[in-house]
Design a protein around this nucleic acid. Structure first.
Lengths: 118, 118
DNA sequence: TTTGTATATCGCAATATTACGATTAATATT
DNA sequence: AATATTAATCGTAATATTGCGATATACAAA
């Protein structure tokens, strides 16, 4: 099969969308997996750094949790610091609020004007 | 490689998470792609059914748009109705509000108690 | 220094997702 | 009836994601 354009199969064509649209999608994607939702909820619940117990808490293998944490860290939603042999994680409040603002702006689009024509 | 448990590689282990966590993840996932963000924003902007012009508006091939619309319809976020040769789409307001409530509950977790210990 | 503990990384397997060309189906139009 | 238009579906290609075992790394304890 031939593609004349720069189409890389299986890869989202982010370049045709606005920065805002890509940003919304990136944030949504990161909590588009139940394990990452569970991790974030656990961090919120404890109100403090969580050191080590995430693996036993979530119920996935240690490398899998580590990978999910990496993705959350990459977007800046969590922070981590080494504490002896273990690593402690917590919510990055600034980034969380920034994300919340961006997602809310998307979710809170004025729905009242939507005609129910379909 | 052998797996004693019921691990199906590449598939999220949804069964170990709560319904709420899986629901949050499902909704987030669906707007975790810029094309679907763009489609939803366009539907909001027009305040009415959008018949046909989505392909030219978004800039992806017709089958690709059709596939994204299918995913949005599957979750119930949009409704479609046949209008002559074309199909008209609009936001499903009830489902949108339901989704908004669920995502907001997740985003609005009390961040004030988070100790900045990391 | 050796041993233990906790996390990260590597490598792999398998499914999921994204995208599009070709085709099909359904309805208008001529 | 033949043709045009529009959207859905099929098939395929290629990357992305998910998950875990094995290993590496880093630090603490004995």
């Amino acid at each position: 099969m031939r593609y004349t354009n720069e189409i890389i199969m299986g890869l989202a064509k982010t370049e045709i969308f606005s920065d805002q649209q890509n940003e919304i999608a990136s944030f949504a994607k990161v909590f588009g997996h139940p394990a990452r939702v569970a991790i974030l909820q656990h961090l919120f619940k404890l109100n403090t750094c969580v050191c080590g117990d995430l693996v036993s808490e979530i119920g996935l293998a240690q490398p899998t949790i580590s990978q999910h944490l990496k993705e959350l860290k990459l977007l800046g939603l969590i922070k981590g610091s080494v504490e002896g042999t273990s690593v402690c994680y917590c919510i990055n409040t600034e980034k969380w609020l920034e994300m919340k603002e961006i997602i809310n702006q998307f979710l809170n689009q004025d729905i009242s004007k939507q005609g129910d024509c379909c």
